[in-house]
């Protein structure tokens, strides 16, 4: 595996330390799960223990962590369990909660109303963090649009409900999880113009509502530029009349695409370096890297 690139970059500012909960966000397919698993691995290597929270079936976190993940506790939260757990104190007892949730009218309502599930999942995360003092909890959040909506449900619910036990639940999530000092946001992005643009929008949007600062930006799959000399030579060959001109032109196109992606990453570094977040880069590998590989690259970027 190749080491992380170390070409010219702005002088690193001392990154603010991460909060107890680390919420990893980014659009689908950028490698969010692997980065989240890598952050948990790194944390466990440095401090002995960490937790990785995943929503759903738990398969992707398990896969990303791989076989050796000493010190990382893998916590899987499913919607049904989260709703049950969140509803128990609201209804006073697990039995009453179960009966109420299983009621003919409640069941379809719960399935159709998305905000309830999201709130319940966040409440579960809050409980996971509260039950593990001193242990950093890395959360593999859903893809971008969804994740932002999740983070807003607590505050929206609080404003909307005004009072009552569910209001109190929203209030607790808003004060103890979705708040500066309680949760840090790590955004994963790719060195492509459009994805970077969306990432900048995401950072601004999170800063506006729910008012969380993006602590770190991980630029994933940064291609290392292939040699400049080869590009010059391939361009010269492409300009000839010979049989190799067309193949050489294809090589030029490929080398230019890589160069553009590297330049895009460099540009991202500049744009993000003006903000308050630290930037970590992870190089492009021909196939999936493991969480441990990514953890090693993140360490080289100053992540631990």
């Amino acid at each position: 595996m190749r080491p992380a690139a170390s070409d010219s970059r702005p002088p690193p500012r001392p990154p603010r330390s991460l909060a107890p909960a680390v919420l990893v966000m980014g659009k689908g397919g950028v490698g969010k799960t692997t980065v989240a698993a890598a952050l948990a691995t790194l944390e466990a290597e440095t401090h002995g223990m960490a937790a990785l929270v995943e929503f759903g079936d738990g398969e992707s976190g398990k896969r990303a962590l791989g076989r050796s993940h000493r010190g990382v506790e893998h916590v899987v939260i499913t919607a049904a369990e989260a709703i049950q757990r969140g509803a128990t104190p609201l209804f006073g007892s697990a039995t009453v909660a179960k009966l109420a949730l299983g009621n003919f009218a409640m069941r379809p309502l719960l399935r159709a109303a998305p905000a309830i599930r999201e709130l319940a999942m966040l409440e579960s995360v809050r409980q996971v963090v509260a039950a593990r003092p001193g242990v950093r909890v890395v959360v593999d959040m859903p893809a971008t649009g969804h994740a932002v909506a999740w983070l807003r449900t607590a505050r929206q619910g609080r404003e909307f409900l005004g009072s009552g036990p569910m209001f109190e639940l929203c209030d607790r999530v808003a004060r103890e999880l979705v708040a500066p000092g309680c949760a840090s946001i790590v955004v994963v992005t790719l060195p492509e113009a459009l994805v970077l643009e969306e990432t900048l929008e995401l950072c601004e949007s999170i800063a506006r509502d729910p008012g969380l600062e993006v602590a770190r930006v991980v630029v994933n799959r940064v291609p290392l530029p292939l040699s400049r000399e080869a590009l010059v030579d391939a361009r010269a060959l492409a300009a000839t009349e010979g049989a190799l001109a067309r193949p050489a032109a294809a090589l030029v196109a490929l080398l230019e695409a890589r160069e553009a992606a590297s330049a895009g990453a460099a540009e991202a570094l500049e744009v993000f370096a003006r903000g308050p977040h630290a930037i970590w880069r992870v190089p492009l590998a021909p196939v999936d890297p493991s969480a441990r590989d990514v953890a090693r690259w993140l360490r080289a970027e100053g992540a631990a």
Partner: peptide, 14 residues
């Protein structure tokens, strides 16, 4: 029961 509980839990607005 569900109605009563629901109103108690969520408040009147919801």
């Amino acid at each position: 029961h569900v109605e009563h509980l629901l109103a108690r839990v969520t408040g009147p607005n919801l």
